[in-house]
Amino acid sequence: MSQKHPVIAVTGSSGAGTSTVKNSFEHIFRREKLKAVIVEGDSFHRYDRDAMKQAVADSEKSNGRPISHFGPEANEFEKLEALFKEYGNNGSGQTRLYLHNDEEASPWQQKAGTFTPWTPIPTGSDLLFYEGLHGGAKSDSADVAKYVDLLVGVVPIVNLEWIQKIFRDTSARGYSTEAVTHTILRRMHDYVHYITPQFSRTHINFQRVPTVDTSNPFIAREIPTLDESYVVIRFRKPEMADFPSLLNMIHDSFMSRPNTIVVPGGKMGMAIELILAPLILDIVAKSRT
């Protein structure tokens, strides 16, 4: 961890909603005029789209444990750790982009599903902001979490997480429900060993809990809305939050434990900004002194 060049990471599994939290962070950066280097977790996958399909097929044919984007075999944990460490030491490092679709790929004159070349990150930034699967990952050869100054987890209950993934992958990416279900099952070992342990290393977790029936996520017809949910917000250390002020400002919120506040789902964005803006400003202020 670094006082001089802060690293802030949002971590959550596929379909968990980290992009929503990323938007709240970007509001804070823009409002407080902070220059942030944005790093996407997909940039640190080991394989491009075509190579990943082949690697998955090969691992399944070998009768061994299939690889997945959740585990170390398909990711560059060591390079992500090196980036966080180098940025923390001197504000530099290298990253790249994963081009998800033709629109993103067109300016690079590459095809979708490939990576841009590794390039140095811009100098003169206030902080590095990571959003992806592995902001708090650990493996036998890397400890990404070690170099993060503020680690935030986005963790819907697992049935809601699966509903969100199924809807995203079927509606936006053209997969069948059966194909998405197969992916969920194939990833389960890595999910248990490399995704969920991160949420015991986070400084703050935002966990969305629906108030409607999600008993069978594989037949759900729609995603529960934020207004049909509560958000359970857990702090590693209670002193990180001004609970009386939060309870006063966020209507219908309540404390469920000494380090946990529960807010209505529709107030999630508000809660994120109220909680994280002071922490981010404190980290940046310390880095400048």
Rank of each mutant, 00 (worst) to 15 (best):
H182F: 13
D143A: 12
G135I: 07
R96G: 08
P120K: 00
E104N: 08
K165E: 12
T116R: 00
D143S: 13
R208F: 13
L160N: 02
V152G: 03
N216M: 05
M188V: 02
Q110D: 10
A137G: 05
L160K: 00
P156M: 06
A142V: 04
N101E: 12
G113M: 07
A112I: 04
T116L: 03
A112P: 10
K165Y: 11
R201T: 11
H182P: 02
L97F: 08
P210K: 06
S125W: 06
Q110L: 15
T119V: 15
Q110C: 09
T211Q: 14
V148A: 00
F129M: 12
A105L: 05
A172D: 15
I121H: 05
S106V: 11
F206C: 01
I157W: 11
P156G: 08
T202Q: 09
N216Q: 07
N101A: 06
L185C: 06
T177K: 14
V155M: 08
T119L: 13
D143T: 10
A142P: 03
H100R: 11
L99K: 01
P156I: 05
A112H: 04
N101R: 09
H203P: 02
F206V: 00
T116Q: 01
S141I: 08
N205Q: 04
D126I: 04
N159Q: 14
S176V: 11
Q207L: 14
A142R: 03
S125K: 12
K138L: 14
E178D: 13
E161H: 12
E104D: 15
T119G: 08
Y175D: 04
Y191V: 00
Y147E: 06
E178G: 02
S215R: 09
S176N: 12
T214L: 03
H193R: 14
T183Y: 12
D169S: 07
L150W: 01
E161T: 01
G113V: 02
L185K: 07
H189R: 14
H189E: 10
V192E: 14
W162T: 05
L97P: 00
K138P: 10
W162E: 10
W118S: 05
V154A: 03
T183A: 15
S106L: 14
N159V: 01
Y147S: 13
R187Q: 04
H193A: 04
R186D: 07
V155P: 01
E131V: 13
T119N: 13
E104W: 01
V158C: 10
P156F: 02
K111F: 15
G124K: 06
W118A: 04
A112M: 11
P210N: 11
T114Y: 12
E178H: 10
L150P: 09
T116S: 09
A105K: 05
G113Y: 12
T202D: 07
L99N: 06
I195G: 00
T123G: 07
I157L: 11
S106E: 15
A105W: 02
A179Q: 15
